[in-house]
Design a protein around this nucleic acid. Structure first.
Length: 457
RNA sequence: GAGAGUGUAGCUCAGUUGGUUAGAGCACCAGAUUGUGGUUCUGGGGGUCGUGGGUUCAAUUCCCAUCAUUCUCCCCA
């Protein structure tokens, strides 16, 4: 290829008509469930002030924020400050004051603080919008992707967590994404572990290592913690945690004993237990909801229950995450307001549905009647009928150009219309209309009046 | 931020142990069928083999660099 082909930026995609139909199916399915549970929709801008986003996602997250270059002479301040020796981090605040949003939760927290005087709490909102991450793209990972968030803010009740389990169940069932598992854990259980072990300062290192248990195994986890400075005594205590297995009930009773003298851990256990028992009463099956003590989740702001949903054997990472954050609005100057929310990754759901052939047929989007164009005179008659059909909310169209009939038929076939209608000079003379069903190939001739009484009200 | 793979027609790819005019399937256009598609048949257009440099009598093929892209780790939806 001698010339550079035009293309979208790395990790960002175009969506053709077929893809949009499928994507809207996902969005609508999720939207319907959210609305049924009483969530209302909002949107926030593509960009936020850089200061709104930085520091909310941990060091790794900050690195992945897409910064937007200032307009105008963005080097002016740097020149005046003699900034030649600066590193890029120091120079950033002079070069960029806006950034593409990294998720929907933090902009929502900003929204809540900004409009709290006119919001009614508990405020239940949903939001379906793209977010951007300057990540290395790979399978199931894009630089621009859609999140479908639902959050409740201003309510401490565990009812919210329990409802999110219901929402997960309903959305995943409606999309026919089975089998799935909703993993649940509690930040206070993780904190409790850290307190018992005596490595409170190393909570982060501990949870990060714990998170890898599935992937790298027990020995490697212990090894990693050893290099992070955990003593042998601490490692022994970690060891007994890593061995926890069995049913959720067994895990819970182990934890109750383990946290005998630890208030934080006990609180976490009690909350998880309640979510489990009530969910079961509401029909959640064994295996659909699982206490996963290795579930950590990176986002720094979670403080209570944390969720993750996975489609078993999909070869895809989690398609949804979420949790409770007690003080997200605190960083914007409004402390003491608790929130909890979840987020579906629409693009990963799309990939799984496509790979497993789980999209339904979308016939209702097809054109019902395509009228062939036999020339200006004949087309006018067709156009009037098309107009009538459209008035009756029937999808109809006239081929705009008097092209060869073979070409028009080919077009009808390619875009998948249901029926082709012919009104040429013959038909006009006899007051007839030809209808061909493109699927069966059947062709019939109807009088105009029969056609109208059959399809028009 | 670290590592690996791949760049040949619009798409998916074959091929050349370095040697005259670089192939297939699909897609596209035309005809067989001048008012009838999806099947079939015939014909056609389209590539300086990602880009730059090196080795060589000769490079699409070997070497180096560069860019693009895919995947893995990190992290995450």
């Amino acid at each position: 290829m001698s010339k550079e082909k035009p293309s979208a930026p790395q990790g960002m995609r175009d969506f053709g008509p077929d893809e949009m139909v499928r994507r809207n199916y996902i969005f609508n399915t999720i939207r319907k469930v959210y609305e049924k549970y009483g969530y209302v929709q909002i949107e926030t801008p593509a960009m936020e002030k850089l200061e709104t986003l930085t520091g909310k996602y941990g060091e790794e997250g900050d690195r992945l924020i897409f910064k937007v270059l200032n307009s105008g002479d963005y080097l002016k301040d740097l020149k005046e400050a003699n900034a030649a020796e600066w590193d890029s981090k120091k120079a950033t605040r002079y070069l960029s004051e806006k950034a593409l949003k990294y998720d929907l939760t933090v902009p929502f927290a900003r929204f809540v603080v900004q409009y709290h005087h006119q919001l009614k709490f508990p405020f239940k909102r949903y939001q379906i919008q793209p977010v951007w991450r300057a990540d290395r793209p790979q399978k199931g990972r894009y630089r621009e992707f859609y999140q479908c968030d639902a959050d409740v803010i201003g309510s401490d009740s565990l009812i919210n967590e329990i409802e999110f389990v219901q929402i997960y169940n309903e959305v995943l069932n409606n999309l026919r994404l089975k089998p799935y598992v909703i993993k649940i854990n509690h930040r206070k259980i993780l904190s409790g572990f850290a307190e018992v072990i005596g490595g409170q300062a190393q909570l982060i290192a501990f949870t990060v290592a714990l998170d890898k248990l599935d992937k790298i195994g027990k020995e490697k986890v212990l090894e990693e913690l050893r290099t992070k400075g955990f003593t042998e005594e601490q490692l022994n205590k970690v060891n007994s945690i890593l061995d926890i297995g069995g049913s959720t009930q067994e895990k819970l009773s182990f934890l109750k004993k383990y946290f005998e003298n630890n208030e934080t851990g006990l609180k976490g256990v009690a909350e998880i237990e309640k979510v489990f028992t009530v969910s079961q009463e509401l029909g959640i099956q064994n295996g659909e909801l699982e206490l996963d003590l290795t579930l950590a989740r990176g986002l720094d702001y979670y403080t209570g229950c944390i969720f993750e949903a996975k489609i078993i054997d999909s070869g895809m990472g989690s398609i949804s995450g979420g949790g409770r954050y007690d003080d997200l609005t605190g960083i914007f100057g409004m402390p003491g307001i608790s929130g909890v929310g979840i987020s579906f990754g629409a693009d990963r759901i799309y990939d799984i549905l496509l790979a497993q052939n789980l999209f339904p047929d979308f016939n209702e989007n097809k054109i019902q009647f395509l009228f062939l164009n036999f020339g200006d005179e004949e087309a006018l008659t067709s156009l009037k009928l098309v107009h009538e059909l459209r008035k009756n909310d029937i999808r109809a169209a006239l081929y705009p150009d008097p092209a060869k009939i073979k070409k028009q038929m080919g077009y009808a076939n390619d875009i998948g219309v249901t029926n082709v209608c012919t009104i040429g000079s013959e038909e006009i003379k006899n007051g007839m209309i030809g209808i061909k069903n493109m699927e069966t190939g059947e062709q019939q001739s109807l009088s105009m009046n029969d056609f109208k009484s059959k399809y028009l009200s």
